[in-house]
């Protein structure tokens, strides 16, 4: 029954996206073209990777709001190290960014597992700690396109599939989408087929029951916060390759609410134990499609913040009212 309800949530979201897209296509036929779809995939892949990391933590009943600071730290440190050393190597950039992500994730995990502190308060603290440290000890100056190492620019332009327009110019599907698919499938495999994945669901469902069932909760939490850090590190490099500009104040303000709205909209429960990767990806798609088309609907970009907030509020209200009604039918004490 639970499974059916979840399925329902995702199909429902999918239908909303389809209807909305059709509506947009009527106004602007250029929307439903392969080229625009490829563009959508390219620009939303980085956000989707953050969403997967956030989703994993949420699934365990925790919340990690430090991820934007982790992503921008990984990115900005990697960019600066590459410039300082004069090395133009994408692998090194990824390694640095991932190392930063993993160590920050470990710091989160340390405070959460050792002292059993509320995850929101811990990560609210580390969000500010990481970002404050980045600006104080690494720098505040943005690296513009001219000063950015070439590898990022070429990585951003790499396509895994290239097609020809009627006029002979090329367009294609960005490698970002491939990275996203690999991460999404990998995460799905972990959740579906490993003891660790089962443990994450169990921890989110009922920590005490999971502990008695023999799961090592600390180990699961260390994995989760490091995994969220790792994904944030990867996202940091993709983000700079996408916008060809590294500003240590980016991501922190823009991505937090968007990612949380996307994940919650995708049907993940804030109290843990419920949700799916597909739902998360659909949530990101919904937010991206809406954001990209606000202007088309005749609304200025000032409406963006409002709409993301509105979607989050409406999305969670619908899910929780549904759950409340279900609970009432089961004659449970709420």
């Amino acid at each position: 029954m639970l499974k059916n309800a979840l399925k329902h949530n995702e199909t429902y979201l999918f239908l909303v996206i389809v209807v909305f897209s059709l509506g947009v296509t009527i106004v602007n036929p250029a929307f439903m073209t392969l080229e625009n779809m490829f563009d959508l995939a390219r620009s939303s892949s980085a956000t989707a990777i953050l969403a997967i990391g956030f989703f994993m933590v949420l699934l365990s009943g925790g919340i990690d709001v430090s991820f934007p600071a982790v992503a921008i730290s990984g990115q900005y440190i990697a960019v600066n190290v590459l410039i300082a050393m004069g090395i133009d190597n994408l692998l090194l950039a990824f390694l640095i960014s991932i190392a930063v992500g993993l160590s920050f994730g470990l710091i989160n995990a340390f405070f959460i597992t050792t002292f059993r502190l509320p995850t929101l308060i811990v990560t609210l603290g580390t969000l500010n700690m990481f970002h404050g440290a980045l600006l104080e000890f690494v720098g505040t100056k943005a690296v513009n396109t001219g000063g950015l190492p070439d590898v990022f620019k070429s990585f951003g332009k790499t396509n895994v599939l290239t097609l020809m327009r009627p006029d002979g110019t090329e367009y294609g599907l960005s490698i970002f989408f491939l990275v996203l698919i690999i991460i999404a499938v990998g995460t799905w495999l972990i959740l579906r087929f490993t003891i660790l994945g089962r443990g994450i669901y169990a921890l989110g469902g009922d920590p005490e029951a999971a502990r008695r069932a023999g799961f090592n909760l600390n180990r699961i939490q260390v994995f989760l916060y490091c995994y969220a850090g790792l994904l944030a590190g990867i996202m940091g490099i993709m983000h700079v390759s996408l916008i060809r500009y590294s500003n240590p104040n980016y991501i922190v303000d823009s991505e937090l609410l968007k990612v949380i709205a996307a994940v919650v909209l995708g049907g993940a429960s804030i109290t843990g134990g419920k949700g799916s990767i597909i739902g998360t990806l659909l949530g990101v798609l919904m937010i991206t499609v809406l954001e990209k088309n606000l202007v088309l609907l005749g609304l200025s970009s000032y409406w963006q913040q409002f709409f993301v907030g509105l979607i989050l509020v409406l999305g969670v209200s619908v899910t929780h009212i549904q759950a409340k009604i279900r609970n009432r039918n089961r004659i449970l004490v709420s």
Binding site: L120, A261, G309, L310, V313, H320
Partner: peptide
């Protein structure tokens, strides 16, 4: 109302309205 009648946990309800209220202020 979001926290009680809709039953949304306070963290996520107020995170959402955080975006909503700031959004209205920006508009």
């Amino acid at each position: 109302i979001l926290i009680t009648l809709a039953g949304v946990p306070a963290i996520i309800a107020t995170l959402g309205t955080n975006g909503l209220f700031l959004g209205i202020a920006i508009i």
